[in-house]
Computed example of a mutant assay.
Amino acid sequence: MNQPSVETYHEDGKWKNKVEGKARATKTFDTKAEAVAAGREQAMKLETEHVIKNMDGKISEKKSYGNDPRAPKDSRG
């Protein structure tokens, strides 16, 4: 995937979204649900991967919204 991924994570008491490679978060949120929804929207717009982390920093979920080279091929022909 050529586009940098969007990461949702917890830091300093807030949930944040950041595009990979950028120094700062694009936006902060009070709840994980709000951050995940906004991160998903941003990843869809950028056609990239959305990486969601728990409060401890471990990845809990990944979703691809782009041209994933590992996506299963259509077997219908």
Results as ranks from 00 to 15, higher is better:
Asp56Leu: 02
Ser5Lys: 09
Glu61Met: 09
Glu47Asp: 09
Pro69Leu: 08
Ala37Lys: 15
Asn17Met: 09
Leu46Pro: 00
Lys53Glu: 06
Gly13Ala: 10
Lys53Ser: 09
Asp68Phe: 05
Arg24Gln: 15
Pro69Gln: 08
Leu46His: 06
Glu61Val: 01
Arg24Leu: 07
Asp12Asn: 10
Ala23Lys: 14
Lys32Glu: 11
Ala35Met: 04
Glu61Phe: 11
His10Leu: 06
Thr26Phe: 07
Lys53Val: 01
Pro4Ile: 00
Ala25Phe: 10
Lys14Ala: 04
Lys16Ile: 00
Asn67Pro: 01
Ala38Tyr: 07
Ala25Asp: 11
Lys62Tyr: 02
Asn67Gln: 14
Thr26Gln: 15
Leu46Lys: 14
Ser5Ala: 08
Phe29Glu: 07
Ala38Met: 10
Arg24Ile: 03
Thr8Arg: 04
Ser75Asp: 12
Thr8Phe: 00
Lys58Tyr: 05
Thr48Leu: 05
Val51Asp: 01
Lys63Thr: 08
Tyr9Ala: 00
Lys22Arg: 14
Thr31Ala: 03
Ala25His: 15
Lys32Val: 04
Asn54Thr: 09
Glu20Arg: 05
Lys18Ala: 01
Glu34Cys: 07
Met55Arg: 12
Thr48Ile: 01
Thr28Lys: 11
Met1His: 12
Asp74His: 15
Trp15Gly: 05
Tyr65Asn: 02
Lys27Tyr: 06
Thr31Cys: 08
Met44Gln: 15
Thr48Cys: 10
Pro69Asn: 10
Gly57Met: 01
Gln42Asp: 11
Thr26Ile: 11
Ile59Gln: 07
Pro72His: 12
Asp56Trp: 05
Met55Ala: 11
Glu49Thr: 08
Asp12Glu: 14
Pro4Lys: 03
Ser64Ala: 07
Lys53Gly: 00
Arg76Phe: 07
Tyr9Met: 02
Ser75Lys: 15
Ser60Trp: 08
Ala33Cys: 04
Met55Gln: 10
Ala43Tyr: 00
Glu7Pro: 00
Val36Thr: 13
Glu20Ser: 07
